[in-house]
């Protein structure tokens, strides 16, 4: 994907929104602009409407948990332009003490379900979202699975060396008792 992230856009954003842009990351030909969360709607509208940019398509919206780094959550937005065939990535850092981000559904209705998924998996709430509910987990599930302090929840695999210990812990042992030793 080289050459599809024009670097001049980061400077244009810095000029027009000097308080919003915190940092610009360049890695493997990708440009990421880290912005302040209150400026999201304005910057997204600016990116969509300005000539020469015309980012009219939301390509990706996801969340990443950077625990134990603070601020903990990073929400990434990747916009694409059909007119000019280029991409740009915005990033918002959110702390776990105040995990609220303005919702992008007023500008891009296609952000509806992805924001619900970020809420479900990380616990970051989106203000102004028409339907903030869990989407992938059952509706009465507690916890946010993709957080780093949420356990994977795996069952220990039963081999001959640990089968007795596992069976002793189970509420209802299996119907055929395991054949250990020589029988």
């Amino acid at each position: 994907m080289s050459g599809y992230y024009p670097p001049e856009f980061a400077d244009i954003l810095r000029e027009n929104f000097p308080d919003a842009v915190q940092e610009v990351i360049e890695f493997r030909d990708q440009i990421t602009v880290v912005i302040d969360r209150d400026w999201l709607i304005e910057i997204a509208t600016f990116l969509r409407d300005t000539e020469g940019m015309k980012f009219n398509y939301l390509s990706e919206l996801n969340g990443v948990d950077y625990w134990p780094q603070a601020p903990r959550f990073g929400i990434n937005y990747i916009f694409y332009s059909f007119v000019h065939n280029h991409l740009i990535q915005l990033k918002i850092f959110v702390d776990e003490t105040d995990p609220v981000v303005p919702s992008l559904t007023s500008v891009f209705p296609g952000a509806n379900w992805p924001e619900r998924e970020v809420y479900d998996m990380f616990g970051v709430r989106f203000e102004g979202h028409p339907d903030m509910r869990r989407i992938l987990m059952p509706y009465d599930w507690t916890g946010h699975p993709l957080r780093k302090d949420f356990p994977l929840g795996y069952e220990e695999v039963q081999y001959t060396f640990n089968i007795d210990r596992i069976e002793a812990n189970k509420p209802t042992p299996s119907a055929d008792p395991p054949q250990t030793g020589t029988e």
Partner: peptide, 23 residues
């Protein structure tokens, strides 16, 4: 040494309860 992890203690429940009421 356990086969299942107790998932209800994984995170705070208060914020979830609040969100269910809003939803």
């Amino acid at each position: 040494d356990v086969t299942r992890v107790n998932l209800t203690e994984a995170t705070d429940i208060e914020s979830d309860r609040q969100t269910v009421e809003i939803a």
